[in-house]
Design a binder for these strands. Structure first.
Lengths: 241, 241
DNA sequence: CGAGCTGTTGACATTGCTCAAATTTCGTGG
DNA sequence: CCACGAAATTTGAGCAATGTCAACAGCTCG
């Protein structure tokens, strides 16, 4: 039982109307005139790279929206094996559960700022603003569709297909993928995170990157930067469904 | 593009108030006095074993509740590799998506009866009965938690752990698992379905069943019946998280 | 009784893992 | 700015778990 969201994380206040990710977040369903109600119940906290946000057994008092930075969600087995169930970026939502404990752990990958709300306050907000509930349902259905896609990846794709699918997914998230032109990706997470997300070992991830580079499907200017010179060729090799 | 829910499936009418799975389904959120409104917009359809309910590319006009029987949900890769993302039982919900096409395919495993509702009618119902929206959000969060648990299984468990986890999950669903006593499971799905659910081949599933039987952790009176004589021993071997 | 399907078993191949070491990167302090 | 040490990444060699291909067995339904 940790208390991570109460220590070594500074509390900030910020106007919701200035929030750069409001349109992507749950808050998009709150009318502009009612942002004041939202501001009254949210607070902001910062987390250092690697810092625990909450773990699976923690009592679930708060829900969070990512304002800045990247977060990893994970589940652990008793012997320490880890499965990362998702990487979150600004605008994404975490912490909503029906039960009294979180269903997964969460850690900051880089410097992270979260917008926090007590679950009891969220529930009151949901009663007052039904549109927010719609929004949460939509976001949950999107999460579920992503989870099903990830099950397909984990259960049925080869290491090469997993890595390519991962890169293409990140490429689609960050860019509009007009078509032919090269895309440069920034990977804030470590090889270990990528391995635990794809159900591989770090060695296999590293070897796969190297062999994709040798094939010319990607370029690796540094360990955290990947260039996809030909998206279409990569799509073909990723066993697109 | 199939049209499965319009052919070779008989339409039935049945009173919602007599529905044996109402308490588990979305409909649990509808007041007893307002079941009439529900009955007006639902219809029932039957599917034969193996019959397609809808496939991934189909336009999503309907949502369904399973009244009877078992359903498999799956996603396919272009070359035919399949990942089963879930097995549904009576009371479970399928077909809700934000987009205009289903996010996965669905097939009847055995004789299935579904309670069907047009998505447009569901949306009207949601506006009139906010409690149903709560219920759907809760059900979606449960589905998501199950999906994350399955990602852990697919990405990080061995074949033996996968099979044991699968059996224990079914045991927990069907029984209260008081503790020491033996549990008999009925597996309506084929080895091929189990393999595609666990990210294995049918041969590995079959071999794993055999070796679990040799170890005494399970008994196999027939291919579709599994006895778990000692739940606790099985839990320990399944790498419970 | 035979055909066909599902499940099991066997032999072998292969992907990805384990263990180990080399290399690169990065932060820190001199 | 450079040197050092720690951590992350890459590379290598061997191996184990699981997949592939093939044969066989058992059951169901005509």
């Amino acid at each position: 039982m940790t208390d991570a969201h109460n220590h070594s994380s500074r509390s900030l206040s910020q106007a919701c109307e200035l929030c750069s990710v409001r349109h992507r977040a749950m808050c998009a369903a709150v009318d502009f005139e009612r942002l004041g109600e939202l501001e009254k119940i949210v607070s902001h906290r910062q987390f250092a790279p690697g810092q625990l946000i909450f773990e699976e057994s923690d009592p679930a008092d708060y829900v969070f929206n990512v304002s800045n930075g990247d977060v990893r969600l994970y589940k652990l087995l008793a012997d320490g094996r880890r499965q990362i169930t998702g990487f979150l970026r600004p605008g994404d939502f975490l912490g909503l559960v029906k039960q009294e404990a979180y269903a997964y752990g969460a850690e900051a990958i880089d410097a992270v700022e979260l917008c926090c709300m007590r679950i009891v306050d969220l529930e009151r907000l949901l009663r007052e603003l039904p549109a927010v509930r719609d929004r949460l349902l939509d976001m949950s259905r999107d999460e579920l569709a992503a989870a099903q896609e990830q099950m397909l990846l984990l259960g049925r794709k080869s290491a090469r297909e997993k890595v390519l699918s991962f890169l293409l997914m990140r490429a689609r998230n960050e860019h509009d993928l007009d078509g032919g032109e090269a895309v440069t990706l920034d990977l804030p997470m470590s090889r270990s995170d990528i391995a635990d997300y794809l159900g591989l070992t770090i060695e296999t991830v590293s070897r796969t990157f190297t062999s994709l580079k040798e094939e010319g499907l990607i370029d690796l200017p540094s360990a955290q930067h990947v260039v996809l010179p030909d998206i279409d060729a990569a799509e073909a090799a990723a066993s697109a469904d």
